[in-house]
Structure formats: structure tokens, C-alpha cells
Nucleic acid binder design. Sequence first.
DNA 1: ATAATTTTTTAGGTATGGCTAAATGCTACT
DNA 2: AGTAGCATTTAGCCATACCTAAAAAATTAT
Lengths: 243, 243
Amino acid sequence: MSGLATQATQDYLKVIYQVCEDHSRASTGQIADELGVTPASVTGMLKKLAASEPALLSYRKHQGAVLTPEGERLALQIIRSHRLLECFLHDTLGYAWDEVHEEAERLEHAISGPLGRRIADLLQEPEHDPHGAPIPTRDLQMPADCSVPLDELTPGQDACVKRVSDRDPQLLRYLAEISLIPGTELTLLQPLPFSDHVRLRYGGDNEAIIISARVACQVFVIPHQRAGEAGKHDCLIAGEQLT
Amino acid sequence: MSGLATQATQDYLKVIYQVCEDHSRASTGQIADELGVTPASVTGMLKKLAASEPALLSYRKHQGAVLTPEGERLALQIIRSHRLLECFLHDTLGYAWDEVHEEAERLEHAISGPLGRRIADLLQEPEHDPHGAPIPTRDLQMPADCSVPLDELTPGQDACVKRVSDRDPQLLRYLAEISLIPGTELTLLQPLPFSDHVRLRYGGDNEAIIISARVACQVFVIPHQRAGEAGKHDCLIAGEQLT
DNA sequence: ATAATTTTTTAGGTATGGCTAAATGCTACT
DNA sequence: AGTAGCATTTAGCCATACCTAAAAAATTAT
């Protein structure tokens, strides 16, 4: 009742989990986009996953899907496998951080529970993948992530890069080049007038760096609390759910 | 024209290659047994693989299949991946030699060419998997294997264990227990009368050890040439083919 | 409120790769 | 040479998971 699940099922659960982290329900269209299939295919699959025993998600017509606790458990297993594999490929096999995602995407469906555990042991239970995304714990709790997109920071505010999106290898190479990587301390400068670009200062040299909004919204930071200011973004517990 | 191939296709090519190592053609029934599917399914699949472009095997009704050079290339890729993974799981992740086969069986379909190469680099291009089976080289040549089943040795003959079958974890645990592992030097003693068991002497102590024929035929050894005796088993080049 | 637009669902099809049952072809024996 | 027994193939079917095109529902704009 818990070991199996086709690769397609695993892929659906994974993206539904991730979509639900932002919007509380995952719509047919969003899932279709993420998986690169047509919305019609998604409708069919959602029905199947909702009707399976035990149900992996709950689905109501025209209102998308939410995972059941069982579905979420499976989703977290895949996500843990994926992120552990990314760490492993990066740390042990010397993969660049823009190469790990694609490879892990295929391997995540093939590794067994014991193999996942051995990898985690070897790496001493890492907490983040190479892009800074939190790794669900051994007992499948998703650590809280209180980061916000860089472009939502208030000008003048200091922050620390927590994680970056791992989807686009080109973006990752660019970010590595400009050293905008997890752990980087930065300050958001005043915006350019008539521009959707963002100005930052960070690193050893005192240069201001300008990045496009398309990039900025893929970089997630933890704002530093400023004295006397109520936290605009209090650390909300994300991805928690009662089981 | 060479990257893809479904998992089922890969499984078929792999077992056809292995069956053809012994018998020059692989029969429908043998393939079905190895894959755990019905002969009817095999017939259907062989037709498909023979009709594909490029053809991966040649198939004639009632006469089974042989791989084409292209099919053999793919088979050797999978076998190389499988055996590299076994080494990796064993050497780097501390798997026992009876655990590696099953895990590698799933992973072999998921790893990319580059990942295979990185693993081979990390392990410094190993020549044998943990059970002693030869690993196809980087350019997909299968190294010659001139070993013979232990039970085909002439009584009194000395030999060195080359490899053991990796199929049965229980057998592997047993062999590890009695230290009948690749590299072991041994002498075949006179057979027991009225018995299909085999008597051996090896290891530090001078004890004779008795193993059943069922075990003996799964252990492959390289006989030592005895002075004045023409080699009964000359080293034949196995698995070679012009491309 | 109604119309236009977008999203989602339904209906009907395709390709893979399995299965069973029945028919056919091979092989070995008398 | 005929036939029994085994291996193989054919025929017809099932499940998964995808697709397209058309219908229906929801959302947005007028």
C-alpha cells in the first residue's frame, strides 16, 4: 500500500506538491504546464489518483487538486530522493550545480529507500540541495522555508540568499558567474526609474549589480530584520500539515 | 538514432546478449524465462525490435533472435552501466555483494552516458563487477572471459575463482560465508562416489570443502595450465564481434 | 446581465507492452 | 512415416498514459 506508484504518478504528486506550496490548490492547467502534457491528460490522471486506494489526492471538477496525507508522503519521498541525489551528484561526483537537476530527475524514480538512506548517511544528512532548497527530513517533514523572492524585498533592505530556482541550467550558470549563490549577503538598492530591473550590492567589491526582474524572482532570500522595524515577512511555516 | 530505447527494450537486449553468450541464438522461451514474461509477449516484442529502424536484432520464426551490431552496442551499454553501478554501490556506498544486483537493475535504465563515465572515472575504470564479471570497456568491447564452471574442472586440477553468478542473493551470501570468492585459489579433489557434489581444497586451512553441483556450476574458474598438459580449455575470445 | 474569453472536461483514439487461449509448427520416438 | 509432446505463434484483450477536437463550465469584460 505504499511502495509502488508508477513514474507518472510520482511526477504528478511531485508537481502538485510544489504547486500547492504557492497556491493552495493545484489547477489542471498549472499541472499540465509543469509536466509538459495537455490539460486533458491531467484531468484523466487526477481522476485516477483521486479514485485510487488509498486516495493520493482529492479532486473536484474545475477546482484542481490537493494531496491527501498519503499523497503528500509519497511526494515528499520523491522530493527527498531528488534533492539528496542532487547533493550526491554535486558533492561526490563533481557535477556542476546546473547539471544535477536533469540527472536527478531520472534517478529519483529508480532509487530504493535503502539507497536513499545510504546516500544521506554518506553526505551526513544534508539539509539543502546545491540550489539551497530544503531536503525533507528522514521522517519526511519538510523544513520551514521563510525565504522570499528577491524582487519582493524593500529597497535598502539587507538579506541573505537562501536558494535559487533549479529549473533553468542557463540561469544557474549565469548566477554562478555573478556569484549570486546561496549564502551571499546582499543589499537591495533603490530601483531604476522606468525599469523592471533590480539593483543589488554584494560581495567583496563595492559595485552595484543590475539584474532583470525575470532573474530576481527566481532568487529567494531571507531578509534581515532591521532594528525598530516590524518584520514584514514573518517566518511562516510552509509545507506543514497535520497527519 | 541511438540515445533512446524504452526500459523494456533495454531489458530484452540485455538478456538476449547474455543468452547468446552461451547459445548462439536466443530462443523465445529462454528470453521469456529470463524476463519473467510469457513466450507470447516475447514473440511480439522480437517482431517489433527486428522491424525497428535501425533493426536491433534479427528474428526468424521458430528460431529465436540474434542481436545486430546496433543491438549489441545498446546491450553492452546497459551491461556496462549495470556492472559499473554494482561496483559503485559496493565500493563507494558499502553495499554487500548480494545487494548490488537488484539495485543496479533499476538504476541501469536511469543513468546517462556522462554519469556512467563519471562513475567509471571515480572508480578508475574497474575491470570487473563485485562478482567478477567483466565490465565492457569505455568503447564497448566486452573483455574476453576464459573461465569455466567449477564443475567442469578435471579432478586434481588447480584453478582460480574468476566470477560467480550474481542472480541469487542467497547463493552469494553462502559463497561469501565459505570464502569462495573471486581470487580464491583452489584445487578440485576427487569426486565423492554416488554423489553430484564436488570436493575442493582452498584457503589457509587444509580442510576439504564439499559443495553441491548446483552451487559449483555457478562458480567460474580459470584453470591453471599444468606442465606437460595441453590446455583443455584454451582461452577463447568471447563476445568479440566485428563492427 | 450578458457576451467574450479562457479553462477545464468529455469523447474518442494511439502506442506500449503485457496477458490468455487457441492454433500451428517443430522434433523426437516408435 | 506417423504421431505425441513441446515450443512458438496468432488472435484478441487489458491497462497505462498520452493525444486531439469538441463541448461545457467558469471567469472576465462590456
